[in-house]
Design a protein around this nucleic acid. Structure first.
Lengths: 191, 191
DNA sequence: ATCAGAATGTGATGTAGGTCACGTAACCAA
DNA sequence: TTGGTTACGTGACCTACATCACATTCTGAT
């Protein structure tokens, strides 16, 4: 689907704004096209924008000791991603975001988001709900981390995102689950 | 501090509303007083409200297999708590909330929150930011879970909430860290 | 004051998952 | 086509933490 329509549909699910209002809102988004492997945010960067994924798949990840990688989020179409901690607190990025596949995203600056939220009550409403869903999902994942072993977490992940299995290399799935690639590999083996 | 003032100050940090507006907003909150050990939400309940802590300390926790407890949140004064997943999705509670100490809370129903958000743009603004901060904190805790061992997580927790050490029993701290009480005890020993 | 139930400490032992090492297969790019 | 990088599997071994068992406070209700 075209970027503009995808975003409009996405917003329409939680907020009612007119076509004219949406045109204005949309004018603040900048379409960007990335190739597989390209970097969007690197740790240490200044972070100005958040990103709405139109197509492709991104990963938001943290690198520890220059060695281990932990994936915070796979960002698929209609998902939003950024280093929100850096974005809202105006600090340097501590995580990285790059492209697992070729990707099209819509970029919205922090200033523009706040401006739009101020101008349109419905836009503020939309962003409240979006964040809310993210918060609930994050709590759920945290609980799963504490409560479930790797095998169950792996099955949960595949149930939630069946596409991932064929889309992203297994060692990235391991990095999302917070487990070594060897352990994940042995999990398959035992079926 | 008095409940009303505490809430007003808390909201004023992110949203500007007049005294008259706040009086109206506040009229939707119901003050509740609980004794140590009392239960606020039990798994399986219908969840209608969220709670703003005025004094005391609550815990939001999950029980697995009727045996193991995992603490999602210690709720201290000016914190909000509820089973947000159940509250927003209108499903039954999957977590419990009870009182670690005597506590005073202000109760706000889901319907009233949505009503107030609709009536006052600034209230919607406030709740967007509150949720945002929660989301960022949750992501940070998730990362810490993946990245750090128990000792570091324990030190992080005490750095963040020094009061906890004397306020809550150690086995609850263990349940927050997602570790057995024995392991936590041995951590102290090694100093 | 007393007694039951929490909370805490500590040893012995088990285990999930990490780390290291090595091999093979797939995928580009020149 | 070839050579290099990335992905993936698998064995041997290690370690952080869980579990179980029991002893020792501490605390709160009668």
């Amino acid at each position: 689907m075209e970027a503009k329509l995808l975003l409009q549909d996405h917003i329409a699910k939680t907020a009612s704004i007119t076509d004219e209002q949406f045109d204005y809102v949309y004018s603040h988004f900048k379409p960007l096209f990335f190739k597989k492997g390209q970097t969007i945010i690197i740790s240490g960067d200044k972070v100005d924008c958040e990103y709405f994924v139109v197509s492709g798949c991104l990963k938001a990840f943290f690198i520890n000791d220059e060695i281990k990688m932990y994936i915070l989020q796979f960002a698929m179409p209609t998902w939003w991603t950024s280093d929100y901690s850096a974005l809202y607190n105006q600090t340097k990025a501590t995580i990285n975001i790059d492209c697992i596949t070729d990707a099209e995203v819509l970029c919205l600056s922090n200033d523009d988001r706040e401006k739009l939220c101020k101008e349109f009550h419905q836009v503020e409403h939309f962003f409240r709900w979006r964040t809310n869903k993210g918060y609930i999902a994050s709590q759920k994942r945290l609980l799963s981390f504490m409560n479930n072993n790797v095998k169950i977490r792996y099955e949960e992940l595949l149930a939630l995102y069946p596409q991932l299995y064929n889309l992203v290399p297994k060692h990235l799935i391991a990095a999302y689950l917070g487990v070594s690639r060897e352990t994940l590999s042995r999990l398959y083996a035992s079926h």
